[in-house]
Design a protein around this nucleic acid. Structure first.
Lengths: 227, 227
DNA sequence: ACAAAAGTGTTGCCATTACACCCATGC
DNA sequence: GCATGGGTGTAATGGCAACACTTTTGT
């Protein structure tokens, strides 16, 4: 019998805000199956687009966002994971600064929103499983590649980076040692500006120098070992 | 227009032999396209089998082998990677002890063989690219998870492990320090038997204790950091 | 003046590295 | 007896963890 399998993509897009920790974009499904359930943004791949193009298109269509970091996560192809047909889904993993976009539900989505990863609603299909894999990847990856910067503002006080790492790796890290380690990697720029937030002494701003990072990586310096 | 995409799996199966280093199983294609080219074993996924089942079936059918380690590698879905139709291929990564099996070409394969990764023939489709990704993964993974044992005999002299790591990470490692490090991980058993190979003093045999490894991993001891 | 957050150095320990000689066997 | 590969210990170094007080601002 002829092969009858469909190919879809799904996206786990993480965002971070000081007050709300790590969150994920979910959409509320407009149609069956799992009508009105929350689910990861995603959908069938078109015949002439690449997998990554498909993810970006779906994120634009369903949630109105454009991620600034995207990588393939894993493919899920268990028969029966979609009650209608056999669907193999290639899941992607994205990072975005939540404040850069106003989420807006479109086409197949009835609603869209950010959900803290510690307070997730029940998800459609095997999306809970996909999310778990993505969280594991995020935690693992942030420890040896500087992807954390994709979640922070372009210019940020050092304490934002500290807090991000605390939330993700939830161990108490020593502020002095953490700073020494990060600064020794050589791709974080100290700016002359400061920012004042709430009470306390104003904080100096820092910026991730992507170019310098790739140069250093090229030369084999640094390479890994973040935390 | 309706989606018209096929789903296939491809397998990069590595083996290791003292005299021939790291090798990969390739098959010689019987049919067009790329007739008579060497290619990775693989093929279309059947409607009711999981992706992993598909890989194992294809490896059995095309090469007559049964791997003892298998993990998903990456999915390749660029339009045009297969000249006939759009095919999304989920690639897997396997390890096997070459001496455990006699390769045997069957069904779609005209021939099958082990090829040293440093002397590869031209490959069909984008299989060279897939292979490159797999090699990178193998090198990366062996440095922090004990998958090297899947390539060695169940009982092996310590020098076999040494040589495997030398070949894969091709830096000269200090024999004494390497042994200290591995033994300190606590899951390598020293047996009472010895083996004599060629000239020289007989070598004591060792065995990877998988159960102990998982116990230790469970407890959070050790976990990573191999080399 | 006090509360809140930012900023900053030094010391001790342990893990990693560097390093070379003897042992058991086959020929 | 010599060639071949196997087996083993110690000392020095440097990277990492532990640790607490001062500064700047707002209220």
């Amino acid at each position: 019998m002829k092969q009858d399998i469909k190919v879809s993509v799904d996206a786990v897009v993480f965002g971070y805000r000081q007050d709300d920790g790590i969150s994920v974009v979910l959409i509320k499904r407009k149609y069956e199956p799992f009508q009105k359930s929350w689910a990861l943004p995603g959908g069938l791949v078109l015949n002439d687009e690449s997998l990554e193009e498909a993810v970006r298109r779906e994120l634009q269509e369903e949630a109105g966002i454009d991620v600034n970091y995207l990588e393939q996560l894993y493919s899920f192809g268990q028969p029966g994971r979609d009650p209608r047909n056999r669907v193999v889904s290639v899941a992607y993993f994205g990072l975005v600064r939540p404040d850069d976009y106003q989420l807006s539900a479109q086409t197949d989505a009835e609603d869209v929103g950010w959900f803290n990863i510690k307070k997730m609603p029940k998800l459609a299909f095997d999306h809970k499983h996909i999310l778990d894999v993505a969280i594991k990847r995020l935690r693992g990856k942030i420890a040896y590649e500087p992807i954390g910067f994709e979640l922070l503002d372009k210019e940020f006080p050092f304490s934002d980076l500290e807090k991000l790492y605390q939330v993700l790796l939830d161990n108490d890290l020593d502020r002095r040692n953490f700073k020494k380690r990060i600064m020794s990697l050589g791709f974080l720029e100290e700016l002359d500006e400061t920012i004042q937030r709430g009470a306390g002494r104003p904080a100096r701003l820092y910026r991730f120098n992507r170019k310098k990072y790739f140069e250093l990586k090229e030369k084999g310096y640094n390479s890994d070992l973040f935390y």
